[in-house]
């Protein structure tokens, strides 16, 4: 794995530093109401700099809503979010991205009519320093910036073995490659934390295994935190260092994969109340 130079973060240990001083994301008592319905309530979570965190829960538990809150697609009704120590309340989605939050979407959202290269270059948007005037005049400075951007994009694509696809229209890529492209585009925004919304959806077991490899690779290469929503328990239990379980908009458990596997509340949320507790049920 070659180290990519574009992310200028100091190297942190792979072991997550969970103390608040090193947190990249801190959500405090976050909540949102849609009319009379409380979709998420009292959501408090801290994610360390290079932590891989999982967000799980039954369908409709509010997982994607949490992502939408963290990226300010929805403004929270209550609570606060700190990204790398900066409060994001009242900011727009694009400003939150500038602070270091990038995401992918449950239903893939690529710029389908643009090439793979341009998709990633769009992710690099705030990393390209050209004024409107130099864009219109195509000054030498503009050309230099574009050339650098192309190089950075190719560097990024090569990390994911997608370099040869650079000129394909994004909409024409196979499903798995589209998912990967979304991740590359998100990484191009130089995030401190990457939010992945069901990255393994629609993948077969071998593709999922590859994805797990990729997620580790992203964390190690770019030294960023990753938070993912996923229903595939093999993936979640396999790569997450910390897991947060959501049910009816509330956190019912937080902890390491082993703690979560054996938590009766989690098993109940997934399987309902029963007489005999099958402790391994949540991992199925």
């Amino acid at each position: 794995m070659n180290q990519v130079k574009m992310v200028p973060y100091p190297s942190h240990s792979i072991i997550p530093e969970r103390d608040e001083g090193h947190a990249v994301l801190q959500a405090r008592e976050l909540g949102i109401d849609f009319g009379g319905l409380t979709a998420v309530d009292d959501f408090t979570l801290t994610i360390g700099r290079t932590e891989i965190a999982g967000l799980i829960g039954p369908n409709g538990a509010g997982k994607t809503t949490v992502f939408n809150l963290l990226t300010n697609v929805y403004q929270p009704t209550r609570g606060s979010i700190l990204i790398d120590g900066k409060n994001t309340v009242g900011k727009s989605t694009y400003q939150v991205n500038k602070l270091g939050v990038a995401r992918t979407f449950q239903n893939i959202r690529l710029f389908a009519n643009m090439s793979v290269l341009d998709n990633v270059k769009t992710g690099l948007h705030n990393g390209i320093q050209t004024s409107l005037l130099s864009s219109v005049l195509h000054t030498p400075g503009f050309k230099k910036a574009e050339k650098e951007a192309n190089e950075r994009v190719m560097e990024l694509l090569d990390v994911f073995h997608m370099g040869y696809m650079a000129n394909y229209p994004a909409g024409s890529l196979p499903y798995g490659a589209q998912r990967r492209l979304e991740i590359v585009r998100a990484l191009a925004t130089q995030p401190k934390i990457l939010l992945l919304d069901e990255p393994a959806a629609g993948m077969n077991p071998s593709e999922t295994a590859e994805l797990m490899e990729t997620i580790h690779q992203i964390r190690d290469t770019f030294q960023i935190a990753i938070m993912l929503i996923e229903h595939d328990m093999n993936l979640v239990m396999g790569i997450c260092e910390g897991i947060c379980v959501l049910n009816y908009g509330k956190i019912i458990a937080k902890g390491t994969p082993d703690e979560i596997k054996n938590n009766p509340l989690v098993i109940e949320a997934y399987l309902g109340k029963g007489k005999g507790g099958n402790t391994n049920a949540a991992s199925e």
């Binding site: 694009y94 959202r109 690529l110 009519n113 769009t122 992710g123 409107l132 864009s135």
Partner: peptide, 28 residues
């Protein structure tokens, strides 16, 4: 020239997917 710059890419990105464009740090 405008269309072929970061500004133009941002404009086309908004057309293709507004939500994703915003998540990429583009001021819609």
């Amino acid at each position: 020239n405008l269309v072929e710059s970061k500004h133009g890419r941002a404009i086309t990105a908004i057309r293709d997917n507004r939500i994703a464009a915003e998540a990429c740090g583009i001021n819609i």
